[in-house]
Amino acid sequence: MSALAEILFGGLFQGSLYAMMAVGLALVWTTIGVFNFSHGVFMMLGAYIAWQLVELGLPAMIAFPIAVVVMAGVGWILQASVVRPLIGRPNIVLVVVITTLAAGSLIENGALTIWGPRSKQIPALIAGNTTIGGVGVSLHQIAIIVITPLILAALWMFLNRTRLGLALRAVAQNEDASHLVGLNVTALYGLAFAIAASLAGLAGIFMGGYRFMSPVMGSDPLLKALIVVVFGGISSISGPIFAAYLIGFFEAACSYYFGLYWTPALLFGVLILTLMVRPEGIFASRSRGLA
């Protein structure tokens, strides 16, 4: 009983964080067709901005939304500076990998210079602990498990029920036609990046609430988010969400039965196998035009 509860809880919790990260990556990929390798750095920066605001004396419930909004701005600026000028170039996928990596390195080293290497922690969403099914858990983790599906549902509503969200999906499906019907494609590209960055920032705030933060805290979640989007199929938003929870459970089960050390290796093994059998991901119906 306790084993099952532990795996279930661990899976839900990790899955929530992975989903928050992966959705942003998938959103940028579907709309712009590039991979944002500074996504992990967004997560780190969101956490540090929140920490800084709390340190300045703001209550957490005000500081966190401000940090998320600031991250949206950061995402927009990054898109405008290192992605937009390259759109239309023949080898854009490759060049954007290097420019976002470089931008990520710039932000990471900037954070190191400003805030220093010392580990920091931001206040939990809800302080305290409880026991469910024989497993001790913190209320902060439960809050994350509850809040994440709400945010993802809100994102889904936005993409499917609002004009702006539909416009975003239109650009993802056919850029030229979107131009023709008068959509501001450039602004929508910026919006995709802004949403992705603020989701990553929020994931960073969640993570900074239960684990110590460091300027390199985003690299591992970025990696996991990459696995998630590959696994779930990169061409949709719902695929990565399902995959995130699936991988969360897989990881929780693996580390319970095989130990923490073998989990990443098993995970990558499963990933490579999945791609050999179903290159478009297990939850994808069809793949976007890839080159």
């Binding site: 996928v93 990459l226 590959v230 990169i234 490579i272 791609l275 890839l290």
Partner: peptide, 15 residues
Amino acid sequence: KGIYIILVTFGFAQL
């Protein structure tokens, strides 16, 4: 093709 090769080879390196 393309981006999927990036992901698998990246995964291989991590593995």
